[in-house]
Amino acid sequence: MTNADPMTGIERRAGREAVLRRSPFWALGRVINSERPWPWIAPVVILLLGIGLYPFIYNIRNSFREFNPMTGNVEPVGLENWRRLLQDDRLHGAFLTSAKYVLAALVIEFVLGLAIAVLLNSGPAISGLWQSLMILPMVVPPTVAAVMFRVLENPDYGALQWLLEGVGLIDKQEPLLGGTGRYAMAAVLIPEIWQWTPFFVLILLAGLKALPQDPLEAAQVDGAGAWRQFWDITLPMLRPMIAVAVLFRLVDLLKVFDYIFVLTSGGPGTRTEVLSFYAYQRSFVTIEWGYGSVLGIVILVLAIVLANVYVRVFKVAW
């Protein structure tokens, strides 16, 4: 008998592969068996680009157009919206208000957070319970927290107002919310600090717990006091943790909106009008979408620049 099949083994394999190539599962098999990373990450990259990049590009396009209430149409305006940036006194005021807000919140939250973290790290018996409770404010949506504080700070029946009146810090004529608005900035900072100081506490506490004990024990042997140990050893070693926490909060604080919207609506006048609230006002109250887009881009650029300056100035090493 002779072999009737004229095809070699190689030809048979090539034939099978050609059939497989026509199968819809062939490409999927190639991806699954691939050792290269791009087929795996490509879908996510495309998705993220779609979600992140498209609105950004749309915003840039929008910044060169403006809604015209007379015609009811969005019309091209060239660089007009960008020129307006330089002449807008209210924007400059909002910029200063944002700076005050960010600085005050960051300093207070950091100092309080560090103090509480050190206290909890010193090991009181119920520190575990406190650590759990610390998470609670952070899981409350900021808008809900703001509404809660609107009740607490109410000049007529607010518990916080009553407490501060009791210790003589404020009076009925000049309450936290209302009156001439002297304490309006404090009124919006209070929920901010209540909600986000625990963020510092948790990060710094984790850092404190992870610090090596040898340098501290050596300093003790050398006779360094508690303050000296903290200032010269603990704090420098904690620097990477501090850097991360401050950077996260800095970027977040630039976007603050909820507390302002619920508690003061930027007022009285423009006293608590921060950049993001001003951008909201332009976009959705006065329906100046183009200028609102410009302000959105400004906030984004500001966050990127500040974050980079911070990383370089403070020599943040990850």
Partner: peptide
């Protein structure tokens, strides 16, 4: 809407919270 919701409301807000 721009005049009533923003210009007058904000500027008047400054006035009514000051002397």
């Amino acid at each position: 809407p721009l005049i009533a919701n923003d210009i007058i409301a904000v500027e008047l807000g400054k006035l009514t919270t000051s002397d």
